[in-house]
Each structure stands twice: as C-alpha cells, then as structure tokens.
Simulated assay, not measured.
Amino acid sequence: MKETAKNEANMQYHLAAAAAVIVLALFVPFPLWKWSILLLTIGIVLSLELLNTALENTVDLMTEQYHPLAEKAKGCCGCRSVYIYNNSCSYWCSAVCRALSTWL
C-alpha cells in the first residue's frame, strides 16, 4: 500500500479523503456501531483502489501495444472504484446530515 500511495494519484486522493472524513466524523455524535461501519467503508474503498491498481498494472504488463480489450478492462476497473466511492460518499453524507439534524 505504501508504494501505491506514493505512485498513484487516486490512492493519494482516497487517503486524503479518508483522513478528512475521520477528522470531520470526530465532530459528529456517531454511536460506536456507525464508527465501525465508517472504518469498514474506508477499508473497502482503499482495498478496491489497491485491486484496481493491481488489475491495471497487470493489463499493462500483459500488453505493450494498445488493444481495445485492455482499454475496456482498465475502464471497468476504474468504474467499479468510482461506483463504490460514490455510493460510500452518498451514504455517509446522508448519515451526517441525519446526525446533525438531530444534534442541532
């Protein structure tokens, strides 16, 4: 993960977002079970980004020339990561809004 964090811009983005989310979540009165789901969600997003990087590097290793199937494979990997990230953000934004509306 250390190597990926140094070389992959998307992993750096996800790590920065995870750090920001954790810091912001400290100010929201979440019960313990929501904290565990939050950390699990962050772990899933980071794991899928690592898998995405591994699959993209494998595709690059297997073909030196441009191939439409290689482009499709890399596109599918990237779309999966974006899909999971967007769903996670949507869920946690609604959870924060609900928590803040009851807190304020």
Rank of each mutant, 00 (worst) to 15 (best):
V23E: 12
S81P: 00
L48N: 07
T102F: 15
P31I: 07
K6M: 09
K74R: 12
M11W: 07
P29Q: 11
C79T: 12
Q65W: 06
R98N: 08
K72Y: 03
E3W: 06
I22E: 03
K34D: 11
I44D: 01
I44W: 12
S81G: 14
M62E: 05
Y83T: 10
N10P: 04
V28G: 01
L24W: 02
L100C: 08
E71A: 15
S36W: 14
Y85V: 01
P31Q: 04
V45S: 05
A99D: 00
L26Y: 08
S90G: 02
S94I: 08
S36H: 05
L15N: 03
W103F: 14
G78V: 08
I37P: 00
M11N: 01
L40S: 13
L69G: 00
C77Q: 05
A25E: 04
E64T: 13
Y83F: 15
N52E: 06
Y13N: 06
V21E: 13
A95W: 02
V23L: 13
P29D: 12
L24H: 01
N52V: 04
W92Y: 10
M1R: 09
N10F: 11
S36G: 00
Q65M: 08
A18H: 09
L48T: 09
V59A: 14
V28C: 04
L55N: 04
A95K: 09
Y91H: 09
A19D: 14
E8F: 13
K74I: 02
Y83G: 02
N87C: 13
M1Q: 05
L55H: 06
P31F: 04
L40T: 12
A19M: 10
A5D: 02
E49T: 15
S94Q: 10
P68C: 01
V45E: 03
Q12R: 10
E71H: 09
L61V: 02
T58H: 09
A5G: 00
D60K: 11
S88N: 06
V21H: 05
Y83C: 06
A17I: 05
N87P: 00
Q65Y: 11
G43L: 09
S81L: 12
E49V: 05
I37Q: 06
Y83I: 07
A54I: 11
L104G: 00
